[in-house]
Amino acid sequence: MQRTLVVIALLAVGLTACQENPVSGRRQLALVSEEQAQSSSAQAYAQTLNEAQKKGKLSTDAALNSRVKRITDRLIVQAGNMYAPSREWKWSVAVIDEPTLNAWCMPGGKMAIYTGIIEKLKLSDDEIAQIMGHEIAHAILGHGRERMSRAMAMQGGMTLGSIVAGRDLSVLSPVADIALTLPNSRSGESEADRYGIELAARAGFDPHAAVRLWGKMSSAGNGGPPQFLSTHPSPDNRIQALNALVPQMMPIYEKAR
């Protein structure tokens, strides 16, 4: 009986804490406020850049930094048109000199891209725009805040469940992560692909570059684990979905050009 009450309480919290995303229209768990998400992201960003600087990992390549900023500035303008509150964000982009094939954008517009992905994949401006458009889409779609909320809900669920069961259930966390977190994260990745390619198109970057980019990622052996255990769609599925979006995005791109 007590265990049932805990489950009901958790479900009630989840339902009341869901909000409709103003960009996608999808309902999202929002236990963490936008202010909290941005504040914690700003602290994490400052710490990340500070550590990178101490290690001499912040790129000093003026031409590369200028190139990345020029591209992201165009995307930021379109992010503001897609999600008006982002016009007030304190946007920032850093180029981190590491071989990692990665880039990210935290809540509030704190961004980074790694030299590894640019150099190893020999990215064009259009392809960089697709990467950063995808990452910016994560931010304006509230995916960072959603991940924080899911983590908080899962942690709270495990704590309450342990009390009721009279034993530590934290060992079940990986199972809960696969069962609950990954499907939503894959959905978030697909959303970021969809809105990221549109952001790039609105900014005047070729939508075909999204397909080329993921072809390069696949060739680089960055496909990762099987799709059912991955937070990212497999490269083949991703390329297929992006290919289907290209005809819709071309008129936007042609108008922006």
Rank of each mutant, 00 (worst) to 15 (best):
A84W: 02
R202T: 03
P251K: 05
I136H: 02
S149Q: 10
E88S: 15
G224Q: 11
A165T: 04
K55N: 08
A209E: 03
G196P: 08
D125Q: 00
V7E: 14
G116N: 01
Q2T: 10
L242E: 05
G142Y: 01
A63C: 09
E34I: 10
R150V: 02
A62E: 15
D73S: 12
R186C: 07
A201I: 03
L49N: 11
P183N: 11
A129V: 09
Q78W: 04
E20C: 08
Q130M: 15
N50R: 15
A62S: 13
M154H: 02
Y195R: 00
K57F: 07
R194G: 01
I178H: 08
S162D: 06
M106F: 15
W214H: 14
L245K: 09
N102I: 08
L245P: 06
A165G: 04
E51L: 13
R202E: 04
A12P: 08
G166T: 03
M217T: 07
I113H: 00
P107M: 06
A79E: 00
A9D: 11
R202Q: 12
G144D: 01
A153T: 03
C105N: 04
H143E: 10
I136Q: 00
F205V: 04
I113M: 03
M154G: 14
S59D: 11
E191P: 10
G188T: 02
R74M: 09
D126P: 03
G221I: 10
G156I: 06
A63K: 15
V164C: 04
A210T: 07
K120R: 14
S39M: 11
E191Y: 07
P207I: 00
S24K: 09
M249L: 06
S162K: 07
S185I: 02
Q38I: 15
V6M: 09
